[in-house]
């Protein structure tokens, strides 16, 4: 039972990533794309943590932490760059 619920959850997260990628491709403005990347990074943190549970390895939690840190810094740097103007 628990396994099936987990599989449904992973499918939902997969569709969330698909929607994020659609917004990333369609865009319209640059900020839209950056917002999509920001949301995708948060979704990816959840997915990496979930994968740590599925594969049973504790090490992947560290990967999620470092990924979150790096993507936060990247989004912040892009936002500052866009604000000052190229």
């Amino acid at each position: 039972m628990a396994e099936i619920i987990l599989q449904i959850a992973v499918v939902l997260i997969f569709f969330s990533i698909v929607f994020g990628v659609v917004r990333l491709v369609v865009g319209r403005t640059t900020i839209d794309r950056v917002v999509a990347i920001d949301m995708l990074s948060v979704v990816t943190i959840s997915l990496i943590a979930l994968y740590a549970h599925i594969s049973g390895r504790f090490v992947y939690i560290d990967v999620a932490l470092v990924y979150g840190l790096l993507s936060f810094l990247a989004v912040l740097a892009i936002a500052r760059y866009l604000e000052k103007g190229p």
Partner: peptide
């Protein structure tokens, strides 16, 4: 986890 995944899904829908 399922409820959390549902919220992530609706974040994607909202983004679209």
């Amino acid at each position: 986890i399922l409820v959390g995944a549902f919220f992530l899904f609706s974040a994607g829908v909202g983004l679209l």
